[in-house]
Design a protein around this nucleic acid. Structure first.
Lengths: 200, 200
DNA sequence: ACCTGAACACCGTTCAAGT
DNA sequence: ACCTGAACACCGTTCAAGT
């Protein structure tokens, strides 16, 4: 498998022609603003208008809403992947490293209202644009989880899939929390305690 | 405050005229089927068609989608409320009673795909039709929570609001789980362990 | 290779007219 | 008091024509 095959997805590729790249970038930027303000269900016509392109141009680059959502969080996901590597290499508190990364993952998955639902919806559909996120999360969390288990801080039977369910559930809770209090913090605290070996 | 004011909501009242009641019931039944098959975002026109009424009739009885969703789960909510009373009166395992009721509540809140999001959305909006659900859950869970605390099975600082966040998050997880495995079961198990006094 | 925007489809919501 | 359905608005999606 070539490096390009790993990094380049079949959907939403950045065009080669200069005008195409300009439009692609403008659409992405407008989408990020719209998703941040209105959630992932924001009007695609409004996004095209804000980007200064016709609606057909948007569809040319992003054939489905999901491809646009995926592209709008792709860079952030790369950072999340790298953070897992950094945290795994650090010596010290294995449980702290795991929980720190889980919190980063929850923040990523709650970037926009509606993102958690998109992620959950494509979690079990191989080939879906946002299925990639689940794959990355699984791969990234595996070594962190293994180290925490070796250190005796997490039950041996906790799986990466269960952690992903926890992360998306916490992200959804965060999306839906009132501005004053983020209920996902306490939810994660309870879950973390519950995953400790001494419990139960 | 009269008893009627407590039980009768200002939205979605069952009409007094016979033809009105027939249509009201037919719409509700069609809505339950449509919500079960397509989630709470199901087409209202299709529901009206299935009920054999004009779209205006549907809007006459249920001015917003939320009122229709609320009415479609109201009876079930009453049962959930009664179950809390029964479980509170039982002698025996206080933690078991609490967790049994929480599981019933999770099932209620995941009756239809999309219901958990409706509930979370109206949780902090007094006056919203589905805000009622949150109020009932809070009232119902309070004595169960108090007994579990007295028995030393749950941390003293756990609030009913936190439990409601846990319930809706678990319901959302259940809605989004693949058919083979319900991830909310493990999520609830972890949270329950994490709420125990000996943890942390 | 990429862009445009008209055209079509579908659905939510309102309201004047009716019984 | 309740019902009807046409009318309007808004949005997603496609595609023939253009550069």
């Amino acid at each position: 498998m070539s490096p390009a095959a790993e990094t380049e997805a079949p959907w939403a590729r950045r065009p080669k022609r200069a005008d195409g790249r300009r439009n692609y970038d403008a659409i992405l930027e407008a989408a990020r603003v719209a998703f941040a303000n209105r959630g992932t269900g924001a009007s695609l016509e409004d996004i095209a208008k804000a980007a200064g392109v016709a609606i057909g141009t948007l569809y040319g680059h992003f054939p489905t809403r999901e491809t646009l959502v995926e592209a709008s969080v792709r860079e952030q996901l790369d950072q999340l992947d790298q953070a897992a590597t950094t945290l795994t290499e650090e010596d010290g508190d294995a449980l702290g490293a795991l929980t720190a990364w889980v919190r980063l993952a929850v923040e990523h998955c709650s970037t926009y209202r509606g993102l958690a639902s998109f992620l959950a919806g494509s979690a079990h559909t191989a080939g879906a644009p946002l299925h990639h996120t689940g794959v990355i999360v699984h791969k990234a969390v595996a070594p962190l989880l293994a180290k925490a288990k070796e250190a005796g801080r997490i039950r041996a039977d906790v799986t990466a899939e269960e952690l992903y369910a926890v992360i998306t559930a916490a992200a959804w809770t965060r999306e839906n929390s009132p501005e004053q209090v983020d209920h996902s913090v306490r939810l994660l605290a309870f879950v973390t305690e519950g995953m400790a070996p001494q419990a139960g």
